[in-house]
């Protein structure tokens, strides 16, 4: 469902200090699978996901989402995606409902479909109480719920979630994690990034370890542990990074 082919992103390639944020990343994610990108801050997770979301244009390589190539039809790719990151904030002067309606429109949904989906998500994510309040008065958790509803509204086949639980309390985190698992059972393909080991263990079918822009290993949790002869994901992570010649930083 998602195929990433040798994606590379170099910032300021012609400048004095070109930064290779992501180098030659390739992987595949299938329907009903959760793929997690695990790595320290600044490893290139967000850049990789931004390229998948066609927010950034890769320096080389491409991705394929539901058979649509990113370098051929960016809008076609975006239509099949839901994308959330720490940088996708909501319009403060609009209410949650207005935000949902706006994005529904942008995704080409009909008015009645938007209304139906809004009601559905309001129930699922327990948003009725604050859906008609302006976004600048919402808490972080409430905002993230609206954001999740925003990307799920058009029921995309692929979800790209950059640190979806960052900065949330346990209760809200649980709601969102349950939501992601539910999407998985409905056959959605999910690519997420996190630096919480437990979350990665809990959620992901396969994990890609990313460090300094390189995907060092891709496997299920058990596979990673077996490869490194360790017992948990954390040790496997340190082991792989050490093997690659550098401690996380």
């Amino acid at each position: 469902m998602v195929e990433v082919v040798a994606l590379t992103k170099t910032f300021a390639p012609s400048g004095k200090n070109p930064i290779e944020a992501v180098k030659d990343a390739s992987f595949e994610v299938h329907a009903g699978e959760i793929f997690g990108l695990l790595g320290p801050n600044g490893a290139g997770k967000t850049t990789l996901l931004r390229m998948l979301g066609t927010i950034l244009t890769p320096t080389s390589g491409h991705s394929v989402v539901c058979g649509v190539r990113s370098d051929v039809d960016q809008q076609g790719v975006r239509r099949r995606l839901g994308f959330i990151s720490g940088n996708t904030r909501l319009y403060k002067r609009l209410t949650g409902r207005e935000v949902l309606r706006y994005f529904g429109c942008l995704y080409g949904m009909a008015e009645d479909a938007i209304a139906r989906q809004t009601t559905r998500f309001a129930e699922l994510l327990e948003m009725e109480a604050f859906l008609d309040r302006r976004c600048d008065s919402l808490s972080t958790g409430q905002t993230q719920k609206v954001n999740i509803a925003r990307v799920m509204l058009h029921d995309p086949a692929v979800l790209i979630l950059d640190e979806p639980t960052l900065g949330l309390d346990i209760l809200t985190s649980k709601t969102i994690i349950d939501f992601i698992l539910d999407a998985k059972t409905r056959g959605r393909c999910i690519v997420l990034s996190t630096h919480y080991m437990t979350e990665a263990e809990l959620l992901c079918d396969r994990i890609g370890l990313i460090h300094q822009g390189r995907l060092l290993a891709i496997d299920a949790k058990e596979g990673l542990c077996a490869q490194t002869g360790t017992h948990n994901l954390k040790d496997a992570f340190f082991h792989i990074i050490e093997r690659a010649g550098g401690v996380a930083g």
Binding site: G76, R78, T88, R89, L90, L106, Y107
Partner: peptide, 10 residues
């Protein structure tokens, strides 16, 4: 910080 939200839409 809403520009990326907008750019993620088709």
């Amino acid at each position: 910080g809403t520009i990326e939200t907008l750019l993620s839409a088709p």
